[in-house]
Design a protein around this nucleic acid. Sequence first.
DNA 1: CGGAGTTGAAGATACGCATTATCAATCCGG
DNA 2: CCGGATTGATAATGCGTATCTTCAACTCCG
Lengths: 349, 349
Amino acid sequence: MSPRPRRVTQREIAELAGVSQTTVSVVLNDRDGSNVRVPEATRARVKAAIEQLTYVADPAARRLAGLDNQIIGVFTYEAALSPESMDFYGPLLNGIERAAEQIGWDLLFFTSSPVENGTRSLFHRKTRLRLTDGCVLLGQQMVASELERLVAEQFPFVAIGRRDETAAAVPYVAIDYVTPTTALIDQAAADGHQQALYVHRGRDTPTARDRRGAVEAASADGRLAFLLVGEERIADLPRLTRATGATLIIAEDAFLAEDVAHALSGAGVAVPDETSLAALGEVRGHRVEGRALAGFHVPRQQLAAEALDLLQLLITTDPQEWAGLDTERLLVAEVEPGDTIVARTDASS
Amino acid sequence: MSPRPRRVTQREIAELAGVSQTTVSVVLNDRDGSNVRVPEATRARVKAAIEQLTYVADPAARRLAGLDNQIIGVFTYEAALSPESMDFYGPLLNGIERAAEQIGWDLLFFTSSPVENGTRSLFHRKTRLRLTDGCVLLGQQMVASELERLVAEQFPFVAIGRRDETAAAVPYVAIDYVTPTTALIDQAAADGHQQALYVHRGRDTPTARDRRGAVEAASADGRLAFLLVGEERIADLPRLTRATGATLIIAEDAFLAEDVAHALSGAGVAVPDETSLAALGEVRGHRVEGRALAGFHVPRQQLAAEALDLLQLLITTDPQEWAGLDTERLLVAEVEPGDTIVARTDASS
DNA sequence: CGGAGTTGAAGATACGCATTATCAATCCGG
DNA sequence: CCGGATTGATAATGCGTATCTTCAACTCCG
């Protein structure tokens, strides 16, 4: 490490203007009260010196003196900027950038976090977390212990895309999948569907459980009967469809729906005329047999904006008062009817 | 701003372990020399206390004490994470993230920088630039005055994608377009082409000038005659092609090439059988009439890796020695032959 | 014209860490 | 057993900024 070049300090400005460092600080921060007073003449002199030396405040010193930094951390449990993760992270990061831009915040990406058994970990001896005023956490799989530690340390943070399930109250912003899933199912039932299949990935994430729960609830209530099928049995779908008499297949996400469509058409099953298809996730840009896939529109940019809004609230609120805040926000995904659910007017009931 | 919660300090560890703060610092940094010595017994006691209190160093204090931060800044003159800019910035950011991950650096995005007449500006009174050990600059249009100030302040930075033209020696990593452009043109000439059109966007960026320069050189040398056409005259291309007898059209980039292809086929000109087509930019994912567009592969990820490598070199080298360093690196874009340049065996010469 | 109040500004200090200088205790050789 | 070298560790200091406290000089009023 080469010696970092020295920069202009308040002391130098003070010398040039013939005042004390204190006065320079006061002028810089436009402070003026009964305690400290600087007449316009002196103020102007100091300002001139500041301009002349092109002063820029040292953020580290400001931070150490207890001020905020206008920096928020962005932590992702996997690489965020790789092409593969762009599908998921892209809209979120875009939303974060826009919101940060508006509020005047810089973004610190914790790319240095050491990778331990597959995921990054936020805490390590030299984590730059404390350089930030608050932090946003992204990722499908978060580590509970780290969330709890953040809560315990009263560090302002917001988890994006996660519905909490630990004991500690984790502030989060997430998508409500239950409401649109129920709506989509009820509409399908109203369209005459009576038996369906739910193809899932068998993952145990909060959102996966939400969707699955809504599906099972519909099945239990008798609104629409479901058979749950793991993704490894996609090849078996044509047979299962005929065996159960299902007229609708709902997949956990759009990519899975495309795989399903491929398997079906490969076996001579017409989609959607013979078997309707829908996905319980973002369907923008996904088409099946030239038709717009039925599913949801997930407001990811809005999600990010909401997260930064909540984060700002936490940062500006004394931790003592956090208990009274509403720190769990849900955004309802919008149902996209698409063209891949056809009504069953044949009424085989 | 709510009061930031206090964290564990070296002093507290010192009290718990019954030593001085100095000793804690020494143990933490594994320092041991003739000046300072800590026997293994004490060292172990301190380490235990550190573990017990889950100490994490305060980055601001470390910085203020003159150490490096393991943070590098990423500055883009426009929004970097928007869908529109992903084409250009995506591979670069991905490369930066990967390189940073390897070296153990965090990334600070200067999203807060105020927008002045269209572009962000790096310097302002509260810029967090000095929090970083060095900085990477991205963007097509950089502001010369800011580059010069960075040079003057001896701040370690690397401009990506820009070939320098200011007086000051700006460290940069960029793509060499001249070599592959010349290669592509010479190959086309060898394939029998004698007259061509060059469709450009009329921009005055360094890379645009590079490409144009290579085209004009070929024309001047008589290797391949070119007519230069601005993008606003795309609709006129069919006529121009016939009027000049051109058998090849080269566009400045792949998107422009697609527009050209559209205009030609709309006018009944067969591409590439009647008129060959190529682009002087990245062609991955671009197809014309079902064929792979001829053009370049631009090693953007490698560009980013190279940039961080150079940046690391600058950071670890004393500014006094910078003059002796090779701070201008060029990566040659690779020619992608594609299928849209057909040989003219009719030999109309 | 003398004390209370006001104005203008500097001094001292804290923030958390690294480093330099310093010092007491112990060891060793003669 | 005495003086220099070594060992083990601490006090002091600086980094740049903000803030709290202090203080001198001046103003005003009776």
